[in-house]
């Protein structure tokens, strides 16, 4: 198991004014699965390619177990990358694809055959060794690509958007399989994705990169409950924001004063609360606001409401059956639990 350290890693492409990745530093503990999360073009794949040795950093360092690997050839780093589009060699059988890494290491054929069998078993494709890649579905091809990477027992497994080409059902299946195998084998894994839900479900920690810069590096819950900026809250689906002033655990805005002990201690602030944390209540009280339902969408397991409160609009996720009590145009009272409100620093215009 390998401990990965990234120190002030920067990549500037020739002719580009802004670096693709700027002074990225993070630590990935042995055997953990970390997601590099961010929108397209934010620099996450660039980071992964630098770790794999496929791109040279402009500055900074990458260390495996406290040893710099920048001078080690990519093929000797043991950082194996699984690409988004699988990239199985089309002229080889599935077994040949899976055994490729061992063949390059000149392992004897009997061992290769045995290990290929084990790997195909692991990814639940035991009988497909003789097939060609084009005879397999996208999900199966991605499993083969995973088996091909795992067979060489990499120091570090790098997964570049491995689920983005799969349909919803396969994505869930593959997500579980990746987590299961990663935990079973204990391989330190870095996982690139633009899907915050995927990152939250799969990883031990998330490194959110926006515009080439690391914004926050925390376990998934931290991004939902205590985002460090409005941009981070936005990225994780935060939609309810109220500007005001924070002082000694009380947040004051045009909607009144709320108890809000989490976040900044004092000063101009931006209070945020997730739609699923807002409760519909019957009576006025502390941290309760009243408003009119302007839209109501039933989505099976729950309902999504938009509620106008003064000059603000709150998004609320409520029980699916709420529609029986409150329809569009009804007045509703919303309880904003104090422990769920997070107050960010907010610069006044």
């Amino acid at each position: 198991m390998t401990h990965l350290s990234i120190n002030a890693l920067t990549k500037r492409y020739p002719g580009e004014e802004k670096p693709a990745i700027d002074s990225l530093s993070l630590e990935v503990e042995s055997g953990k699965l970390v997601a590099l999360l961010g929108p397209s073009g934010c620099g996450k794949t660039t980071t992964m390619k630098m770790i794999a040795g496929l791109l040279e950093p402009t500055s900074g360092d990458i260390l495996f177990d406290n040893q710099s690997i920048l001078n080690i050839a990519p093929e000797k780093r043991g950082a194996v990358m699984v690409f988004q589009n699988y990239l199985l060699f089309p002229y080889m059988t599935i077994a040949q694809n899976v055994g490729y890494g061992l063949k390059m290491r000149k392992v004897d054929q009997a061992t290769i055959d045995r290990r290929v069998g084990e790997m195909l078993e692991l990814v639940k494709l035991p009988s497909l060794g003789d097939r060609r890649p084009k005879e397999l579905s996208g999900g199966q091809q991605q499993r083969v690509a995973l088996a091909r990477a795992l067979i060489v027992q990499p120091n570090l497994l790098l997964l570049d958007e491995p689920l983005s080409n799969l349909d919803a059902h396969l994505r869930f299946e593959m997500r579980d399989l990746i987590r299961e195998i990663q935990q079973e084998m204990g391989i330190t894994t870095l996982f690139v994705t633009h899907d915050q839900e995927e990152a939250a479900v799969l990883s031990d920690k998330i490194a959110l990169i926006l515009d080439g810069t690391l914004q926050q590096y925390d376990p998934p819950m931290g991004f939902y409950e205590s985002p460090k900026s409005r941009a981070i809250a936005d990225f994780f689906g935060g939609v309810n924001f109220v500007t005001g002033t924070q002082d000694k655990g009380r947040f004051t805005s045009d909607l009144g004063a709320w108890s809000a002990p989490r976040g900044i201690e004092a000063g101009s602030g931006l209070a945020t609360i997730r739609p699923e944390d807002i409760e519909i209540c019957e009576a006025p009280g502390e941290n309760v606001v009243s408003g009119n339902i302007v839209s109501h969408v039933y989505v099976g397991t729950h309902s999504r409401l938009k509620v106008d409160v003064g000059a603000h609009q709150f998004h609320v996720v409520a029980d699916a059956g709420i529609i029986k009590t409150y329809g569009t145009g009804s007045t509703v009272m919303l309880h904003l639990p104090a422990e769920k409100i997070w107050v960010l620093p907010h610069a006044k215009d």
Partner: peptide, 23 residues
Amino acid sequence: DYEAVAQSLGANRWQRFRTVTLP
């Protein structure tokens, strides 16, 4: 990308040419 995959799986320059580029 195919060569990059081969490289990350441990193939050296000649192996990459022989087993990936040429085929």
